[in-house]
Write a protein that binds this DNA or RNA. Structure first.
Lengths: 244, 244
DNA sequence: TCAAAAGTGTTCTGTTTACACCCATGG
DNA sequence: CCATGGGTGTAAACAGAACACTTTTGA
């Protein structure tokens, strides 16, 4: 029996090499641009790199693709390992391949961007002490081509926020209209008119008003809202498109 | 002398392995979705696969990334080698990594989409006899996950065509308004109103009217137009955005 | 003279923008 | 009683959609 199994496994090894054996192989990295939102500002989660080259410089979190997983899985693993976060909005961004992008070794990197609600996720889970939130506008220079990745991610985020209801990923489950507006102002990097914004959001009809107030922001207090995924899905099914 | 050089090269080899030596390496492929436009229909260029696995099935054109090049360069090389085409609109689309996407060997593929003007490019240059244009709506089942790539590419093309003047890449240098409208109708997969379309295009003010007629389409003949990259750039500089 | 495609403006509708005052409350 | 942020509607401007007839000319 054993020899037979061994033989089969050997054949598979052979097969694995058979077709494209003369081609170059490369390292594939996954890097995550993690956006958060805190009160009034978009933030980005960075880490101090703990390996050479460029040890101790600020970097996106990342890791290498294993043969046993696909890229989405790798991105989830990286996020989970380094931040303890799960069930996070993740989207593939772009693949970066400049020859000398990583001076350590020829590496191609697939960037993902992630959206998380800073407040609701306890960060006890953060596995690396060197992780830190930076105000997007005051973030440091990063290793390799990570700055370019962040710029691309910001551009993507702006576009997505206008066409998909992903903004809510960055807010607590319950939020005020003002918080939502602050978020969109941060993402789009411009002031919005209060009345026009609320009117537009209301006509979308994908929020539930909670008749419960957040008293922390003012004496009067402001109503809390919640994203209603079911309403949103119904809108989609009716062919209506999210457009902010 | 010789030993010294050898030593240096040895050191470099060592360095190449030093940092991330325990990580898995993978094959990185590049696959190109090549769109063309002919009279009234969007087309896609496919090839009969000439290697195993799945030999003789229809496939996108592709190739493997070499260590000496970046992905854009690899895409250009693949396109050039298989079609003889150069100076073609190319854009990175997405990276596909399902574990068994290529049963031959673990392969990650970066898809690019390309736009070419079928008419103006002589296809004497096509290096593979098995390459063939297919009407997009009547194209065959493809190998691996190539159908998914094509669907993603179509979605991207629709979006791009509305926000960037890339449609002209698919037309001859001189074209009639009707050709342009047919193109957009094909891309967007819906009928457009003739007067509204022409009015919109004219207000963009990025075309030159040539006072030269194409007599092949009607007895009256129709005026030819040309995309004016300089005008377009000026519009951009003025902060105006292309929006069709 | 007629068939076939080219060319051309106006009205209507819906969407986007600009804009200002009263309300509720805690201190 | 007042300072602070919350909440609300309308009018004007603009952009998008709907729509029909005349022109040219080769056969």
């Amino acid at each position: 029996m054993k020899p037979l199994i061994k033989l089969a496994s050997k054949e598979e090894d052979a097969k694995e090499l058979q077709y494209y054996s003369k081609e170059d192989q490369v390292l594939l990295a996954v890097d995550c641009i993690i956006f958060g939102f805190d009160k009034k500002n978009l933030k980005i989660l960075l880490v101090k790199r703990d390996i050479e080259p460029q040890k101790n410089r600020w970097s996106l979190i990342g890791g290498f693709l294993k043969k046993s997983e696909n890229l989405d899985t790798a991105a989830i693993r990286v996020l989970q390992r380094l931040t303890g976060l799960q069930h996070v909005y993740l989207e593939q961004l772009n693949t970066y391949s400049k020859i000398d992008r990583d001076p350590g070794q020829r590496t191609i990197s697939v960037a993902y961007f992630a959206l998380i609600d800073v407040a609701s996720h306890s960060f006890d889970g953060i596995q690396i002490d060197a992780a830190q939130w930076f105000n997007l506008k005051k973030s440091p220079q990063l290793v390799f081509d990570h700055n370019e990745m962040v710029e691309d991610a910001i551009r993507r985020l702006k576009r997505r926020a206008l066409t998909k209801p992903i903004g809510f990923e960055l807010l607590p489950e319950k939020f005020t209209m003002r918080q939502l507006q602050n978020l969109y102002e941060s993402i789009l990097d411009k002031k919005l008119d209060k009345r026009n914004f609320i009117n537009k959001v209301n006509t979308l009809n994908i929020l539930d008003k909670l008749y419960e107030k957040d008293m922390s922001s003012s004496r009067k207090g402001s109503f809390l809202y919640q994203f209603d995924a079911i309403k949103y899905q119904q809108k989609l099914d009716e062919g209506l498109i999210f457009k902010l």
